[in-house]
């Protein structure tokens, strides 16, 4: 086992993927707690599809993928949030429309230019080879920004997640913070989807939060557990991917699924105990 891990670290591209992936897993888990509790889980899924569309277009036009995808996904995040806030339009249906449309446009653009090749496969299901040195620097800066902002605004994020009306009444700019959460989520997805793939990145946001909620009773407990679970599952998934030559993104999702089932079992057993 130890040998396997040390072997992993001897590859430069794996080191880069591990570094960026760990940071993304951490960010996604933190933001996921708020998104899941606010019933915004689908936004993460919708954004990743938009991200795929943007990446495909960027590739077709031979532009830097991050530079194109980041602003497009951030814009989409604001749009999706606006739709969800407006109760007269059914938010989930609108998100599904935007998601599948972006996917379709992405697929058409790619098939017209380079054709459906391994790059497209990589965007859809992730590739640990995707990380160049420049991407690593950008990803580290973006992830660090997400982490710092989350810690600074932790108490406000809690208040808004728990009770938006109360937070607003006490003078918190709830809309502003919702936008901030959407912005941070968009950035996390853009950075993470290179490794995880557009189809699988949303699991990184949703799974750890749900897993932590099986057993934790306080918000702080959920946030911390969610972050730990996410990072541990990411690492286990990467090791499994290396050992069994399975796709990295899918392995990480399966690791998260296992953790979820384990925690659900613990939660159910604890619920049965008296007291």
């Amino acid at each position: 086992m130890l040998e396997l891990v040390s072997q992993m670290f001897s590859y430069g591209f794996l080191n880069r993927a591990l570094l960026v992936g760990t940071l993304v897993a951490l960010c996604a888990a933190l933001l996921g707690v708020s998104l899941v509790l606010k019933r915004y889980s689908m936004i993460g899924d919708g954004l990743s599809h938009v991200g795929f569309g943007a990446l495909s277009v960027a590739m077709a036009m031979q532009l830097a993928p991050l530079a194109v995808a980041a602003p497009v996904v951030v814009l989409a995040a604001f749009l999706l949030l606006r739709i969800s806030e407006n109760s007269r339009i059914k938010g989930d249906a609108a998100i599904a429309l935007i998601a599948s449309s972006s996917l379709a446009i992405g697929v058409i653009v790619t098939s017209l230019t380079s054709g459906m090749n391994t790059d497209v496969y990589g965007y859809l299901f992730g590739s640990i080879l995707a990380m160049g040195a420049g991407d690593v620097a950008a990803s580290v800066v973006l992830s660090a920004a997400v982490l710092v902002l989350f810690v600074l605004f932790y108490n406000k994020i809690f208040a808004i997640t728990f009770d938006e009306a109360f937070a607003q009444a006490t003078g918190v700019n709830a809309r502003g913070y919702n936008l901030l959460i959407a912005l941070l989520t968009a950035v996390t997805i853009v950075v993470g989807m290179r490794i995880m793939g557009a189809m699988l990145i949303s699991s990184l946001i949703i799974f750890p939060a749900l897993t932590a909620m099986r057993v934790c009773r306080s918000f702080k407990g959920v946030v911390i557990t969610s972050a730990l679970v996410s990072v541990v599952c990411f690492f286990c998934g990467m090791v499994a991917s290396f050992a069994f030559s399975t796709p990295a993104g899918a392995s990480i999702v399966v690791a998260n699924l296992s953790a979820f089932l384990l925690f659900a079992l613990v939660g159910a057993l604890r619920g049965k105990l008296p007291g």
Partner: peptide
């Protein structure tokens, strides 16, 4: 001090009583 109507989100919200009360000091 505002006591809003309960929302669906709160029904299964994992937060301790202390965390919820403390969030009243936000203003």
């Amino acid at each position: 001090g505002y006591l809003p109507q309960q929302t669906v989100v709160q029904k299964d919200f994992p937060a301790s009583v202390y965390e919820v009360v403390l969030s009243g000091c936000l203003n």
